[in-house]
Amino acid sequence: MDPILLLTQALNGLQLGVMLFLMAAGLTLVFGIMGLINLAHGSLYMAGAYAMAAVFAWSGSFLAGLAAAVAAAALLGVAIEMAALRLLYRRDHLDQVLATFGLILFFNELARIIWGPAAIFVTVPAALSHTVEILPGAPYPAYRLVVIAAGVAVAAGLYLLIARTRLGMLIRAGASNRTMVSALGVDIGRLYTAVFALGAGLAALAGAMAGPILSVEPGMGEPVLILTLVVIVVGGIGSIRGAFAAALLIGFVDTIGRAFLPALLRDLLAPSAANAVGPALASMLIYLTMAVVLAIRPQGLFAARTG
């Protein structure tokens, strides 16, 4: 197989993986620590993309856009947590799903009212709009390389935060036994709000970085939310390490599947059958991966809560 193509596809897989990790990190913490299923996580991703687009267009600075997106979404996250989600912690998962699904509808409609139904224009910053020859004959968009670097850097920073700081210690403790943490005198309400703001900021960072690549429109958060749910289930709920491993796994499986599976099937099957089966199978591959992982390790790759 063509090594240049393989390298390009590996980078594509890595890029999808780190984006998914940014989304999954927040979602898995909220799920693991608060026991809350937050479907509106995709809305925070969308909020990040829109905030970035607005500030980028107004100031002309991409970095200002990123910073504004993260700050705005973290504040929005705090507001959502205080106004709505607090009421849901003691309710069962079905109520949480219903309520946060309602939030999705609310935020999509809000985006439609503010920015209109059509996709809005966001471009790659001029300094990153070229392609880089990673190997001779293998140009790769500079912007996507930066996304990979930023994603890896944030993952490293998150690891340090969780492993080395007091907040991180509380988060780990909360994920493994939240009743005990509150019994030890930790203000669990404030911890919840902080975790939620952190998750919202990460989701917004993912959305803001995706803005120049994807179309910024109402409802853009839902496709990525579905992938993110797959990631946290595969990774083990509440585990940052699991989210990182699973995000990369899902990123690679999805990319490699889409890139090579249809061609592989064309060698094995008749062209018409391959054309019918190939795309369907390629888009199912991540769910098959999830099924296999769950069959072998029902708690996910790295379970946070033991016993």
Binding site: L5, T8, N12, G13, L16, R144, A210, P223, P262
Partner: peptide, 19 residues
């Protein structure tokens, strides 16, 4: 190549185009 409906990212397919 047929991609999933509403697929957001086409990087994998675009690499195949170049090849």
């Amino acid at each position: 190549v047929y991609t999933a409906v509403n697929q957001p990212d086409y990087s994998a397919e675009l690499a195949q185009v170049r090849a």
